[in-house]
Design a protein around this nucleic acid. Structure first.
Lengths: 331, 331
DNA sequence: TTGAAAGCGCTAACAG
DNA sequence: CTGTTAGCGCTTTCAA
């Protein structure tokens, strides 16, 4: 590995001048500058990041902590953050934490390794997160933590749109498949949906704490957890929704004929061959979430310690339709 | 951030003794050792990784380069590698490279940041990869590169199993949906399937270069690319297979009644409620791939420069069955 | 505009 | 068993 000193010697200048020619070009004579830069490129100089970090105290790296690397929901978030980081010459450290304690522990252990930590849907108590933030720059994704820079997809608002759509189609009894207990965002979503549905004189039945898999959807379709008069279901995960769609159809329940299905993310809501996407869902700007949070962490100005909400968009697909008539009079 | 010197002072010893008490405890008197260790813990000492790396030349970090962070196929691989790394106190750097050039460029730029690089399904020419390996320790996942430590899922063998299964059910005309051009593994898979199918007097029809999405499957179901006498399809991605399953059923083609569908990975092959998994597929040990490759990179002994094949397992699901009779005599 | 020198925090020879 | 010392490669005062 070729060092600054090698280039300096080749250029016939001192280390200091070589260093300046690269990091503060305006401080050296044009001729010297160009010679050093050319040689650096030719010789393939790569400044030792450790030495650099030791002096500057900055690593150029941001760490991302996610609950799980296998959950496809986090992929786009990581991708967005990673793209933003490499655009500014930085790198992304990544790790997964099984629970809130491990999250905080991990983030703290990252102190000298990264300039900041991006916590994605962290589960530690707010107080611990705020305490952590006093030790290392923090940004949070998909959890609104007061007094911390947080970036959340405004899915509560989006679920309102979803509920409105279903109500407009005529549904009054709607099921909701919720996420892990203690997800503050899921609670907000449920509240938002409740509001709309109740206002319209309907009822929302909630089952909770389901994991975001196809499997969950298939299982729920097989062991139906809702009352028989439920005519539409919203799942917080599009994989659950897809599982429901497949499972219901396998059991002879037409979707959307007898049951409408919708999802709170758009990961599996694909396929618009003229007939519209497969699933009615919320388009959630996951990459943008990651990008914004990463930008907040690497930006020269400290990130504002406030919650930033990013809007979602209703994606009308062919998994929702008018409810089947209650008594088989029509058709 | 509290430094070694602070702890040394508090313990009334020199920096060197404090350093030794932590990294080579056997070289220090029991009393001193315990005092230093206790104080280090109490004061929350965290050794500066940059200083450490500057001296030792090792960062304790391994970089992983994947083609895409949004493709769910890579999640489990990353998870396996990351788990292995953190088990040995290391960290994982992550980035995605859009093409072969960028891959090599990226890996080279990682030189001082990571002790080694894990390339997942890299697309650069073998020669460039071998050249890269002379500059930084390398391990490759899911591409057999001679003279490099490579860990590949033996899906060619697995596809043979899949083909045998379909042939045994009575299928003779089988479709195959292949991946991006130039994937050496996919070529091997196609060859393996061809072999089996031809030997049994059947024919394999291949369409290629499809991206691994649900969407692709839906599209193919809508614009059927195979001859009408094809009675079974194998897709290299389970998301494509799932899309096919949904799309075909939506068009009234029963699966597996009129068309059998199978996949070369098990990501979407879920749901065994007594009736078996939704999809017939190959269980591919993705986490194990990541784990093994990461272990090779951090192990004290250099990784063997050879291809290690990891077996797959046939997962019989309810998306495959006997072909429908050609002429509608029976039933 | 440039060079000499100090030092970031740590570890490992080398004496004692 | 422990302390002193030097130095990893870089950046930045401080003088020239």
């Amino acid at each position: 590995m070729i060092r600054l000193e090698d280039v300096a010697r080749a250029a016939g200048v001192s280390k200091s001048t070589a260093s300046r020619a690269l990091s503060r070009p305006d401080l050296v004579a044009a001729g010297t500058r160009e010679k050093v830069q050319r040689l650096a490129a030719e010789m393939g100089l790569s400044l030792n990041p450790a030495a650099r970090a030791l002096f500057t105290g900055r690593t150029g790296t941001v760490a991302m902590v996610v609950p799980s690397l296998t959950n496809p929901y986090f992929g786009p978030i990581l991708a967005g953050a990673q793209r933003e980081l490499s655009a500014s010459g930085g790198h992304a450290l990544i790790s997964s934490a099984s629970d809130g304690d491990r999250e905080v522990e991990l983030a703290a252990s990252l102190l000298g390794h990264a300039d900041g930590v991006l916590l994605v849907t962290p589960r530690a108590p707010e107080e611990r997160l705020r305490e952590l933030a006093t030790r290392i720059p923090l940004a949070v994704i998909d959890r609104p933590v007061p007094e911390l820079p947080a970036y959340v997809a405004d899915t509560p608002r989006g679920v309102g749109l979803l509920a409105a759509h279903l109500l407009e189609l005529g549904h009054r009894r709607i099921g909701y498949v919720g996420g892990p207990d203690g997800s503050s965002l899921d609670r907000l979503r449920i509240d938002a949906a409740q509001d709309r549905v109740r206002t319209a004189g309907g009822r929302l039945d909630v089952v909770g704490s389901e994991s975001p898999d196809l499997d969950t959807g298939l299982r729920l379709a097989a062991h139906w957890p809702f009352d028989d008069d439920v005519t539409a279901v919203v799942a917080y995960s599009s994989y659950i929704a897809l599982g429901l769609l497949i499972g219901l159809r396998e059991r002879g329940v037409e979707v959307p004929g007898r049951m409408s299905v919708a999802a709170v993310d758009h990961l599996a809501a694909v396929g618009g061959n003229g007939s519209g996407p497969l699933l009615t869902a919320l388009r959630v700007p996951l990459e943008e979430l990651g990008r914004a949070a990463a930008a907040a962490l690497v930006g020269s100005t400290p990130a504002p310690a406030e919650v930033t909400r990013i809007g979602t968009e209703l994606l009308l697909g062919r998994s929702t339709g008018a409810p089947a008539p209650r008594s088989p009079r029509g058709t």
